[in-house]
């Protein structure tokens, strides 16, 4: 869902600074200003209501639930306050929890860099091309539109089964493949391939970023005798670093939120042997198949805090390696 959200948000920060400048004339009367202030809240009211009712209240409610044993079937008078039990259970008595943490981290740490590397690589190749760029760009982008669907996950499941098309392909080269999705060693890797396959969206963003790198920088570097690699390292990467940063934040958060492919490929179990038990799948199973909603709320809150921390880490380390051209550079 939040396919393209993060890089925009990062862009937003840059923008909100500039848009804060009031364009209003000082002579404007107080009455008009008040009218505009009122109108502002009128226009904002649906969003504000949504923020309160659909986001803020549920968050607080979920925090409350995380300290209870609430399950869907029980009536409210059966709900008990259990203190930190849910959190304690998570860290000490739920082995699946640690499987979920490990699987999710592995998935995000490997799939996200691979996907970004693929996106950047292809963008660099395309950037050099004169003809057919539009066509290539569109076709490479297609999987990003389709890849999150149940249909593609079903196709992946069929392609990467023991007697699926991928092994058929391998057998042409005399290789006997594994049962991929039914093999705990390979099932998660299969999901990663599906993620990398959707490199199109970050690629499009990289391409646009590359177009904004001033060509005279390369020319100057070439005159100085810098080789291709040096140019890439000293010019392209720094110039592109804001875009890389946006893509990284975006894709990491997306990576942590993967659900559909793991659900479909493991038939909702996170198997074989927990190998595809993404954190979100664990939340879903605890909350909606076991109906331990209190526990699932606790899981959600820890998830939220973890993602919050990761975002903070990104933004606080970002200033050491992200170069904004209108800033210090």
């Amino acid at each position: 869902m939040a396919l393209t959200t993060a890089h925009q948000s990062a862009g937003a920060e840059a923008n909100s600074a500039t848009s804060g400048r009031p364009a209003r004339k000082p002579r404007e009367s107080g009455r008009l200003r008040r009218q505009e202030g009122r109108a502002g809240y009128v226009f904002l009211s649906p969003w504000l209501l949504g923020l309160m009712a659909i986001t803020a209240f549920p968050m607080l409610f979920s925090l409350y639930l995380s300290f209870t044993n609430y399950d869907v079937l029980a009536s409210w008078d059966q709900v008990e306050w259990v203190g930190l039990d849910n959190y304690q259970r998570m860290f000490t008595e739920d082995p699946s929890y640690w499987h979920a943490v490990r699987v999710t981290l592995t998935y995000a740490l490997i799939a996200v860099p691979l996907k970004l590397a693929a996106a950047l690589g292809v963008a660099l190749l395309l950037n050099r091309e004169r003809r057919g760029v539009g066509l290539f760009r569109s076709l490479f982008y297609l999987p990003s539109l389709l890849g999150g669907s149940v249909a593609l996950a079903l196709v992946w499941r069929a392609m990467f089964s023991g007697d699926g098309a991928f092994n058929d392909l391998l057998s042409l080269f005399g290789i006997e493949g594994a049962p991929w999705v039914n093999d705990p060693t390979w099932a998660l890797e299969t999901l990663m391939v599906l993620a990398v396959w959707q490199f199109g969206a970050p690629m499009v963003i990289f391409l646009a970023g590359l177009k904004q790198v001033p060509t005279d920088l390369y020319e100057a570097a070439a005159v100085d005798g810098a080789g291709k690699f040096r140019q890439f390292w000293n010019i392209t990467l720094p110039m592109l670093s804001p875009v890389i940063f946006f893509n990284l934040v975006l894709e990491t958060i997306n990576g942590f939120q993967g659900f559909t492919s793991a659900f479909v490929i493991s038939n909702g179990t996170g198997g074989p042997v927990y190998s595809t038990l993404l954190y979100t799948l664990h939340i879903y199973n605890e909350g909606f198949t076991e109906f331990r909603m209190g526990y699932a709320s606790a899981l959600s809150w820890v998830f939220l805090i973890a993602i919050g921390l990761i975002t903070v880490v990104f933004f606080s380390t970002g200033r050491f390696w992200v170069h904004y051209s209108d800033g210090e550079n």
């Binding site: 699946s96 093999d183 705990p184 179990t269 996170g270 198997g271 074989p272 042997v273 927990y274 198949t289 076991e290 331990r292």
Partner: peptide, 19 residues
């Protein structure tokens, strides 16, 4: 019970797979 039998399924599979 319903949750526990799923746990048994997952745990027993880890033996089946030699994990």
């Amino acid at each position: 019970h319903n949750g526990l039998r799923n746990k048994l399924r997952d745990i027993a599979e880890s033996v089946t797979y030699g994990k």
